[in-house]
Design a binder for these strands. Structure first.
Ligand SMILES: [Mn+2]
Ligand SMILES: [Mn+2]
Ligand SMILES: [Mn+2]
Ligand SMILES: [Mn+2]
Lengths: 220, 220
DNA sequence: AAAAATTTTTAGATTTACCTAAAAATTTAA
DNA sequence: TTAAATTTTTAGGTAAATCTAAAAATTTTT
């Protein structure tokens, strides 16, 4: 049984490992809002428990056991987010912090019944995939909106930035999950992207376009 | 902001104060499954934070602030129990431990929306009253089944013992919340109670009868 | 390949929530 | 009203998770 803190470290390492092969002490520290010295302490402990492989100065990787725990926490986090949005009418930008706490509730029964209650959802309110109870989930193959060319179209199926400010901004623009979009123009001057929605035409910055994930349904 | 541990102490003191005026160190220790020395440590800390009034060797009482926190935890505990039973199909004997964790999730929004989602329930699955968001709730006026006389009738509206063993036993006997009962006899030999239910007649021990709470609807 | 910059670890403390053993206070019984 | 039993507190320590400051290792730049 892992502590709340250990679970958060494992989850952080798991997410960092999705981006970089070599997970560094400083990166973990930044993500966990703590100091590198504290991270070193914790890594040693996790290594002793067989949850990570660790070589001094070489960063960490999760062991099979460590990855299993991490994926389980991710599963709980995302299921609770679905609950908050679908059942309690939270907005997609309001759920993260509460899910951050709820993910640590220790009861297998609870999470399985919650999963069933929610209808075994496959994705959370941000489009991230929800692992099943065996930890399996499809590797989603999204394209960043910024990578699309003029004329390409697709459906918004995820975001790669979960800050409240970003999500609120998307909401205001009408860029929510499931929306059909088509690239009508890409501005030479600043690289901003002109998008055609079903009912309107909008312009978004490169920065915003970078963090919108599209499941492409046809290039031109 | 209180820690998980502080919240549990406050809740324990609150419940003990419902039974005895003077809440003793040893009683808290037993309830919290810890040692009296640890309780003394914590009491001092809570006193410093203004959550309890404390005079050495004289036991503790909650301050207004302490009582507010305690009632808030009780509210959360009971609302989560309702959620588990009504929405996730847990049995009334399976919910306590999970609610013991869930009650510490810190989000006012969460609990208010949960309350609404559940339809603002007035009682939890064990018949205990749920405080509203201002901490107010009706002092329930139950009678212990053991105190009824032959011929008295009423409705089962609560239990004063929450152990899984006891609750499972009641379930098996068909003595669940809302059931109409009438006392048909009280055995001279062992004081056991003969009860008439709508569909059958059963006999329960004094020990069981002590912990069933009845809202009486007419003595004879 | 040195020097400089960055990253990571160690050393030594702190805080929180515990513990055991022993001392002190209070309550109950003789 | 002493003596005995019980309750409560104090003293001194431990373990988990954190911190700061300084040392060590690695990487990047000149
Ligand atoms: Mn968390
Ligand atoms: Mn999410
Ligand atoms: Mn609790
Ligand atoms: Mn209850």
């Amino acid at each position: 049984m892992q502590s709340y803190t250990e679970e958060n470290y494992l989850k952080t390492i798991y997410h960092l490992a999705e981006k970089t092969t070599n997970v560094q002490t400083n990166a973990i520290a930044e993500q966990m809002q703590t100091k590198p010295a504290s991270v070193t302490d914790m890594i040693k402990k996790l290594a002793e428990k067989g949850l990570v492989d660790y070589i001094k100065y070489q960063g960490v990787t999760l062991t099979e056991a460590g990855k299993n725990t991490a994926v389980d926490i991710v599963r709980k986090h995302r299921l609770w987010e679905v609950f908050l949005v679908n059942k309690l009418n939270f907005k997609w930008d309001e759920v993260h912090d509460v899910a951050e706490e709820l993910e640590h509730i220790k009861s297998i029964e609870l999470i399985e019944r919650l999963d069933e209650f929610l209808g075994f959802p496959k994705a959370d309110p941000h489009g991230d995939p929800i692992p099943d109870k065996n930890g399996r989930f499809a590797k989603t193959q999204f394209i960043k909106l910024i990578e699309l060319k003029i004329g390409d179209s697709g459906t918004i199926t995820g975001v790669s930035q979960h800050s409240s400010a970003f999500l609120k901004h998307l909401e205001k623009l009408g860029l929510t999950l499931g929306k059909q979009i088509q690239i009508s123009d890409i501005t030479d001057f600043d690289g901003s992207v002109e998008i055609k929605l079903s009912d309107k035409q909008i312009n978004i910055s490169r920065e915003v376009a970078k963090h919108i994930l599209i499941s492409s349904n046809g290039k031109n």
